[in-house]
């Protein structure tokens, strides 16, 4: 039994079958990559995990509980955090405030009325957020407005926000897209380090094969809404079906 069990998930958009009977099992404490050509339905699949979309049929179980029909904030509080394909951050707030919100959400839950406490006096939260920013190498940017960050930094910030929540399952939708090579390598190192430090499961969508093969323990190949194969990275590399669906199209 995996921490995330996806059974028979299908989703239609008008005439387009975006997901077609997807079965997927993500084992606890592993990094599971989902790869496939553009438009394969990878992001759509993640949307079904976090409450953004409800599939037409099938089930999605996290830790033995169904996530379907739950609101995004409830699913997050169950322990699933997500980095989006286009960074979702609080652009009007500072980098530090962005991360602090995650820390507050982890400590205080989905709602807490605290109008007369003071952010400045929350020593623990400040410490956690600062540590997180040190981990992602962004501490020097703590007072910057998130809007003024580079694309790669926005992505890193979003990752820091998700990691600050200490989720059980982290969903990453192309976390290194738009990053320079050095930043991509830093991100790989960061994710490896996090993985060593604590119990965390990751499902990662990525086009950059260097990232995929550096991190993934299992790989699922998705094409036209259907999983073609699921196997170890070594076996995937030489798989004829993968070459045909994935490399064949891009080559």
């Amino acid at each position: 039994m995996g921490i995330l069990e996806v059974k028979g998930v299908s989703k239609r958009f008008g005439g387009l079958q975006a997901l077609n009977d997807v079965n997927l099992s993500v084992k606890e404490n592993t990094v599971h990559a989902i790869i496939g050509p553009n438009g394969a339905g990878k992001s759509t699949l993640l949307n079904c995990f976090v409450g953004k979309l409800i599939p037409d049929s099938g089930s999605v179980m996290f830790n033995g509980q169904s996530v379907l029909g739950r609101k995004p904030h409830e699913i997050n509080q169950m322990g699933i955090a997500r980095v989006f394909q286009t960074p979702e951050i609080f652009t009007d707030l500072t980098v530090m405030e962005n991360v602090m919100i995650s820390c507050f959400a982890r400590r205080d839950g989905s709602f807490r009325l605290h109008p007369f406490e003071t952010v400045m006096h929350e020593k623990d939260i400040i410490e956690q957020a600062e540590q997180m920013l040190i981990d992602v190498n962004m501490i020097d940017k703590r007072e910057m407005h998130a809007a003024s960050l580079s694309r790669g930094d926005k992505r890193r910030l979003e990752m820091a926000m998700c990691l600050a929540q200490e989720p059980k399952l982290l969903l990453l939708d192309e976390p290194t897209a738009g990053m320079a090579r050095a930043d991509t390598n830093n991100t790989i190192d960061l994710l490896k380090e996090i993985k060593q430090k604590r119990d965390i499961t990751m499902a990662i969508i990525e086009h950059d094969m260097h990232v995929v093969f550096s991190l993934a323990e299992r790989i699922t190949v998705l094409a036209q809404g259907t999983p073609l194969v699921e196997d170890t990275p070594d076996n995937i590399k030489g798989h004829p079906k993968v070459k045909e669906a994935y490399l064949g199209e891009s080559a």
Binding site: H73, A81, E88, I89, T91, A105
Partner: peptide
């Protein structure tokens, strides 16, 4: 200056992110 005020400002900026960060807006 409160965490509550911070959440309110976050709502103005990006309600989607707040929901996916576990906050019921």
């Amino acid at each position: 200056r409160s965490p509550f005020g911070l959440m309110l400002r976050a709502i103005k900026t990006n309600q989607t992110r707040l929901n996916y960060t576990g906050i019921n807006t």
